[in-house]
Design a binder for these strands. Structure first.
Lengths: 137, 137
DNA sequence: AAAATCAATGAAGGTTTCTGTTAAGATTGA
DNA sequence: TCAATCTTAACAGAAACCTTCATTGATTTT
C-alpha cells in the first residue's frame, strides 16, 4: 500500500488554500507551487481535478487564481482522495482464485476503515501556521 | 492510496498455504499459481520475499515446495505487507513546502491506524473453506 | 475596441516504477 | 545421471508519474 506523490501534493496545496481562505485573495498556481514545493505544471492538472469535483473554484485572467469552494472545516482528506484518485483505497487485485472473494471482502473492510479515518481530518486541522514563518529576515 | 496486485497475490497464496498447513504436504509453485490464479513466474519472486522474511520455508528438489514457517494464527496481513513491500504504508511524499511537515505527521497517524487494523487479520481468518468447492462435478 | 498580457486548460512526450516473462543456474530425490 | 523443483538475474511491456508545449479565456492598457 502506498500514498502517491500526487495525493500528497493535493493535500499540501489544499492546506495552503485553507490558510488563504477568507482573505479575499485568489491563490495563483505559481504561489501554490512555490509555497508547497510542487512542480507548477503538474499542479495545474491536480487543481483541475479538484475543481471538476467541486472542492475549489477558479478564475481566469490577470487577476485569476484558485479559492476553496467550501470552508476548510467542510473539506476532508477523504474528499481530496476521492477527487484526485476516484476512491479512497484503490484495489488492484482481480479477486480470482480460491481466496479472491475473501480477500476482496477484507480489503473492503480495510478501505471502509480508512474512509472513516480520513474523513476525520479536515483542512482546518491541516492548515496550522507553520512555525518557520516566524523566522522572517 | 492503493493496494498493489503483488500484495493481493501474496495474501491469496498465503491463504492457500494456510489451508494446507498441518497436512504435511509441500505446496509447489504450480499448484499455488493455479489455485489462486497468479502468474507462476511472478509468484516465484513473491515467494522469495516471503521466504527471506521468514514467513515461509522452502525445499528444493523433486519433492520440493513451500510451507508456512509458523502457524496461521501467528501470521498477519501486516506481516505479509512488511515482507513484500518493506512497510505497511509507503509514503511517497517529500514533505517539503509549508504543509509538508504536518502532512507527514498525518500520514504517519493513518499508517499507524492501518498497521493496527492489518495486524488484526491473521491467516486462519483468510483461509476459510471456499463455498464454490462444494460444487464439484 | 483592439492589442497585449496574464493565467487556466488541454494535449503530447519522457522518465521512472510496477508487473510479468525468459532463461540460466542450483539442489534434491530416484 | 536424469528429472523435478526452487533460486536468481536480466529483460520487456504496461502503467504511473512528472514535465513541457500549445491553446483558450479573461483582464487591462492604449
Amino acid at each position: 500500500m502506498k500514498v502517491s506523490v500526487k495525493i500528497d501534493y493535493a493535500c499540501r496545496v489544499m492546506a495552503e488554500l485553507a490558510r488563504l481562505h477568507g482573505s479575499g485573495t485568489l491563490a495563483q498556481i505559481d504561489h501554490l507551487a512555490q509555497t508547497e514545493a510542487v512542480p507548477a505544471n503538474f499542479l495545474a492538472q491536480i487543481l483541475g481535478k479538484l475543481r471538476t469535483h467541486g472542492l475549489i473554484t477558479s478564475r481566469r485572467g490577470s487577476l485569476g487564481g484558485y479559492v476553496l469552494a467550501r470552508s476548510p472545516e467542510e473539506i476532508s482528506l477523504y474528499d481530496i482522495l476521492l477527487a484526485v484518485e476516484g476512491e479512497c483505497l484503490h484495489l488492484s487485485g482481480n479477486f480470482q482464485g480460491r481466496s479472491g472473494r475473501r480477500l476482496k471482502q477484507v480489503w473492503g473492510e480495510i478501505s471502509a476503515d480508512l474512509g472513516k479515518k480520513t474523513k476525520g481530518y479536515t483542512l482546518n486541522q491541516l492548515a496550522t501556521k507553520n512555525p518557520t514563518e516566524m523566522y522572517y529576515i
